[in-house]
């Protein structure tokens, strides 16, 4: 099963994007993690790992906001027994495109193709 994982430095950004996507596609598992457990701004390996594990999907399209999220994600990618596809796309637009296409049952090749012009990282 394919799903979406949103990783942001901010809890509100992550939650907001999750709500936005859930409104459009209800059948795609969308998980998110934002900020630190204390509510402060940041990302950590542990919290990303937890969110990725919580998703029922075994293949996750991941959208993130800033550089340190990416490094933590890469560490999770190396240790977690799921496929994490780290997308360099702009977080909001990328997640929107992927969620819509997963929901329409498009294959990964089609998704990659649509995400490509949104790449900014």
């Amino acid at each position: 099963m394919r799903g979406i994982l949103i990783v942001s430095h901010s809890a509100k950004l992550a939650e907001g994007l999750h709500d936005l996507l859930q409104e459009i596609v209800s059948q795609v598992p969308i998980h998110y993690v934002g900020g630190l457990e204390t509510g402060e701004i940041g990302t950590t390996y542990d919290r990303i790992m937890e969110a990725a594990e919580a998703s029922p999907a075994d293949e996750l399209y991941v959208f993130y906001d800033l550089g340190s999220a990416k490094m933590n994600l890469e560490m999770v990618q190396e240790t977690l027994d799921k496929t994490l596809i780290l997308s360099p796309a702009a977080m909001v637009e990328g997640a929107f495109v992927a969620a819509t296409l997963i929901s329409a049952n498009a294959d990964n090749k089609a998704i990659e193709k649509q995400l490509k012009p949104l790449g900014i990282k």
Partner: peptide, 9 residues
């Protein structure tokens, strides 16, 4: 698990 910025990873 605690640093939170790029210095964590």
């Amino acid at each position: 698990s605690k640093v939170g910025g790029a210095s964590g990873p």
